[in-house]
């Protein structure tokens, strides 16, 4: 039987740079590797990885396995899974970490079932049990109403990690590491799904993930219009972006790209303003990392007030315009 050793991070890159989830995973993975006294490595799949191996080393990895192939230009489950399955079998790591991203959500379950091992998705904390050396995998369950800690005795132990729950180490360009190119023959005959078209649903203005302030609306907003007027005006004053909880998205008031929550975007802005949002656990899961949460809701019993640092009880149609007007004055001073 193979010996399972080390921690490996599945890295994601875009336009020649690592995604922030990858540097976060390297930070979290570094702690696990140190606790185990084993190596941290990173795998990178792309048509061309560019400077990202150096970046991964600067962010704490000891080894970088790279697979470059023209067929890896865009993520495609049937091509990527063969490469990742082969790497996992060759490297036989003790732990595999992926981001709870579009790719990680798709790739991790496929990989776990192919390798015959367990997986915990959407983890918010990972640590090593000092006695058993097993990975303790903490994840929110019941829509965020509780947390569970899982272990898995079959190897490798696989976890996907929620963005913005782990911290990257400080970048150090002088760190040394090893880059190991790996050639994988990709069997194109196993590709069963065909992508006909990719459609971007552009959202004007600042992207949610990058916005320092987010003004979100919920079911209580009542329709699409106020997102473009009342909420937008407030967001503009604070140079922020407009978001929403799930009901406005499901009702078609605003596009999915603006959805903050467990199944939408996980954000952590400086200021998060929740307007007419009841505060269901699955929404809180998407914004609980914010520095300051401000709630405006007419229902004093709304769960959102338990999460908020500041709150106003009242109809948003009356509260928000006055709030926006006063902010404008204060910020002009």
């Amino acid at each position: 039987m193979a010996e399972y050793k080390g921690v490996i991070v599945y890295g994601e890159l875009i336009n020649g740079k690592l995604l922030s989830i990858t540097t976060e995973l390297l930070g979290g993975g570094r702690n696990l590797a140190t606790a185990l006294k084993e190596d941290l490595s990173c795998v990178l799949l792309a048509d061309t990885v560019g400077e990202t191996p150096k970046e991964a080393i600067a962010f704490g990895t000891d080894k970088v396995y790279i697979v470059e192939d023209p067929s890896l230009k865009e993520y495609q489950a049937d091509t990527y899974i063969q490469v990742v399955e082969k790497l996992a079998k060759e490297i036989s790591p003790r732990i595999i970490l992926m981001g709870q991203t579009s790719i990680g959500r798709d790739l991790a379950p496929r990989l776990a079932f192919r390798l015959g091992t367990g997986l915990s998705t959407d983890c918010v904390d990972l640590s090593i049990d000092s006695e058993t050396k097993l990975l303790l995998q903490t994840k929110p369950v019941y829509g965020g109403n509780a947390q569970a800690i899982f272990t898995c005795e079959s190897m490798p132990q696989i976890a996907t990690v929620r963005p913005k729950t782990m911290s990257p180490i400080e970048r150090d360009n002088s760190r040394k590491g090893e880059v190991i190119p790996i050639k994988v023959e990709i069997d194109m005959s196993t590709i069963r799904t065909k992508v006909i078209e990719k459609v971007k649903e552009e959202v004007a203005g600042i992207k949610l993930e990058d916005a320092p302030t987010i003004v979100s609306g919920g079911r209580g907003i009542g329709g699409p219009e106020p997102f473009k007027t009342t909420l937008k005006e407030l967001a503009d004053v604070l140079h922020g972006a407009v978001g929403a909880s799930r009901p406005p998205v499901d009702n078609g008031w605003i596009p999915e790209a603006m959805h903050v929550g467990l199944t939408g975007k996980i954000v952590a802005p400086d200021i998060y303003i929740a307007i007419a949002i009841s505060g269901a656990s699955q929404h809180i899961a998407g914004c609980s990392g914010s520095k300051t949460i401000i709630a405006i809701n007419k229902d004093p019993e709304a769960n959102i007030f338990k999460e908020a640092n500041f709150g106003v009880v009242g109809r948003y149609e009356e509260v928000v315009p006055a709030f926006t007007k006063k902010l404008k004055e204060l910020l002009a001073e």
């Binding site: 500041f310 106003v312 009242g314 009356e318 509260v319 928000v320 006055a322 709030f323 006063k326 902010l327």
Partner: peptide
């Protein structure tokens, strides 16, 4: 409610 909105801005 409007005054509460104004006060919120002042408090922040």
């Amino acid at each position: 409610p409007a005054e509460a909105g104004t006060n919120l801005a002042i408090r922040l």
